[in-house]
Design a binder for these strands. Sequence first.
DNA 1: ATATTTTTCGACCAATGCGTCAGTTCAGTC
DNA 2: GACTGAACTGACGCATTGGTCGAAAAATAT
Lengths: 201, 201
Amino acid sequence: MATNLREELKAKKQAYVQDEIIAAAARLFAERGIRAVTIDDIASSLGYTKSVVYYYFKNKNQVLWEIFNRIHEAWLSDMQVIVAQDIPPDQKLAALIRQHALNVMDRTEWTAIFFRDQSELTEAQQATVAERKRTFDRNFRDTYMAGVKAGMFKDIPAAVIASGIVGMCNQTHVWFKKGKGLSAADIADHFTSIILDGCRA
Amino acid sequence: MATNLREELKAKKQAYVQDEIIAAAARLFAERGIRAVTIDDIASSLGYTKSVVYYYFKNKNQVLWEIFNRIHEAWLSDMQVIVAQDIPPDQKLAALIRQHALNVMDRTEWTAIFFRDQSELTEAQQATVAERKRTFDRNFRDTYMAGVKAGMFKDIPAAVIASGIVGMCNQTHVWFKKGKGLSAADIADHFTSIILDGCRA
DNA sequence: ATATTTTTCGACCAATGCGTCAGTTCAGTC
DNA sequence: GACTGAACTGACGCATTGGTCGAAAAATAT
């Protein structure tokens, strides 16, 4: 069908422009916070006018929400792969730390937005975020608790460990600069080693 | 002098109302971010009108800046006390971690504002913040490096350690709730023990 | 009681920025 | 070469909000 093909092409093109807009928005949001960024700012940083953004997105909130969805998708899917592996708890925890640290440092803007602009989401959206966050934390906690049971880790409340580790990784978004100082991989390795040695029974 | 006394009384009263306004503002800023809070919001949360806030502060920025100054003053002065002590590096590092974790958890709003609204400050103010931050980090780094020299700690880049530790503590502002779960003191102790064990050579 | 100083009020202005809409341009199609 | 639908424009309405200002009210002094 010719119409079908056209539809497809249209969708692809639209997806491309949407990606472009989201990337530009993320850059600006991360730097200044969503409230300080106008739709005009986003548009003109791409050489467009405001109306173009409104052609591709319903409103500002939808742009932000799309960013959140992409963050979660990336983080959680990476995590699932590791959780599904059949390896001992200490190796699993190490992999989780490393992966999360790398994820944050790979896209520091996302993390900045995640923490800074969460309160700009609707109630319903915030509830979804909270739910996903719980899933995320639970995987860390469960892995740690498995390690405690196996006698590998100190018997410390898993919630504290999980929050501490995740917090350490998340805050890298504030100070890590690509190409400056240590590489993301090195930092991730150091973090992993400190935490694991610190947790061993 | 009668006039002198009156001045003094006036100053005290004004300082009191200023504190009140700053506390209210901090609560709201932390929750929603400065841009999402109007001067009216701050005033009416205290039963005042907007003009009262403008009577005590020049503008919105001055309210924010005052909050930043109080954060810094509290954090840095606590830190100075510890740094000045003549104790071995591992004990000093432990004290630094514990103190900072406690400070953050004691006033989670402040930390939220510190990270969220820094970009709302003027260039000059941001430069001042950056300078204070450097001082803060340097104390962590120096303490760690002293520990490495003394053969107590692993020879890992001190910048990574410092950033990791501070990050871990700072992020508590996101999840720690007074009176819920573990106490701030317990969490601080756990953090200290994990990091110190993780760092020992 | 009156004068003076401090504090508070409420109306107002100007700027900003979200979101809308009627139209224009342009590529592909019949 | 007329038609169609997608992509884009520019101007506008409208609500919000930072900040100002003159006056009222409250407190204090004389």
